[in-house]
Write a protein that binds this DNA or RNA. Structure first.
Length: 294
RNA sequence: GCAGGGAUAGUGAAGCGGUCAAACACGGGUGACUGUAAAUCAUCUGGCUUUCGCCUUCGGGGGUUCGAAUCCCUCUCCCUGCA
């Protein structure tokens, strides 16, 4: 059974969503978001979530699937996204995987097998231990610390949680086309700046306020970029200008990390950021022509 | 004009005779990444060099000393008190 899948990846603010919509309309696709923040309800402005009208034009999946204070994971994402993908394919359409969360993208395209669940209570206990204590614990359980970054607490915690089970990945799944959107960092910076200003103009502050009122500052939804920065502002410890600056800075740092992740993937077909849709379109048409129903 | 305080790498700021190319923070670069991933972590950040190392730095100039960012003299600029 032939089942092509197209992915659009890249750092924030490079126009993935807009491109995806155009592609989807032209090529009979439905969109599966691969973004760790779009999964969450009520964080709309700060995540640049695709608008309702966009979502009406073309179905989007894996958006608004968890509550603001709910735990989520890459493994959970994989399961849900896979379901959506199969569903789309069953209806004879092409899934368009779109997002900037490299781990989520790769979990699908390289069929990650995650190493084992985590128990929320146990995780909390582990979080309270020092790195040294975690090392000791891992050693006493006979776990192999040599394969992980032992200075990274989260990796050690995960090693303990998964009891040494090893995660695996496969080759890039066949029938996959990956398109990357990027541009020189300077331009990305400028786009981020502009976008953050726009978010604030659109009422990001109120969105944050109502979330913090309803769920408290500890909820997951307020830990993200564009959200956490406001806590200081609402405590009168930071001006609006400073808040905006910090959001921009955090977003740029994110973009760099995303770039680092995607850069090493040699299967990506890169396009510069103000995308020329015609170019991308050509590649996609060629790709999809291989699958014209016989 | 007199008295006192200050001038340190991209920024802020330690250092106050040797272990100082100079703590730390921020800013910047590079990279890692599988059940928190918008997370978490590593690493570099005066110049040249892969390393060893060499060279030029701590407002300017001149001294003291085996040795100075650190002590002395002087000049410039900034702040404070008295005029």
């Amino acid at each position: 059974m032939i089942a092509p899948i197209i992915a659009i990846v890249g750092p924030t603010a490079t126009g993935k969503s807009d491109l995806a919509l155009e592609i989807a309309k032209k090529h009979n696709c439905e969109i599966v978001s691969a973004d760790s923040w779009l999964v969450r309800k009520y964080v709309d402005i700060g995540t640049a979530k695709p608008s309702l009208s966009m979502r009406q034009e073309v179905p989007h999946y894996l958006i608004d699937v968890v509550e603001p204070d709910e735990d989520f994971s890459a493994a959970a994402y994989k399961e849900l996204a896979l379901k959506a993908i199969l569903d789309i394919q069953d209806r004879g359409k092409v899934p368009l995987l779109v997002g900037g969360t490299g781990l989520y993208i790769d979990a699908i395209l390289y069929d990650f097998s995650f190493a084992g669940e985590s128990d929320p209570r146990m995780r909390q206990e582990l979080n309270n231990l020092s790195l040294d204590e975690l090392h000791q614990m891992a050693r006493s359980k006979g776990l192999d610390l040599s394969q992980i970054d032992v200075r990274n607490k989260r990796r050690v915690i995960r090693l303990i949680e998964s009891e040494g089970k090893v995660a695996t990945k496969k080759e890039l799944r066949p029938d996959t086309l990956i398109i990357g959107l990027s541009s020189p960092l300077d331009l990305i910076k400028r786009r981020i700046e502009e976008r953050v200003k726009q978010m604030i103009a659109q009422g990001l502050k109120d969105e944050v306020k109502s979330l913090s009122d309803q769920y408290g500052w500890n909820c997951e939804a307020l830990k993200g970029i564009g959200y956490s920065e406001w806590q200081q502002y609402f405590n009168d410890k930071q001006s609006l200008e400073e808040t905006q600056k910090r959001i921009i800075k955090d977003s740029i740092d994110l973009a760099k990390r995303q770039l680092t992740w995607f850069k090493r993937n040699l299967s990506i077909h890169w396009y510069p950021t103000p995308v020329n849709i015609a170019n991308v379109d050509e590649l996609i048409t060629t790709f999809l022509n291989n699958y014209v129903s016989l």
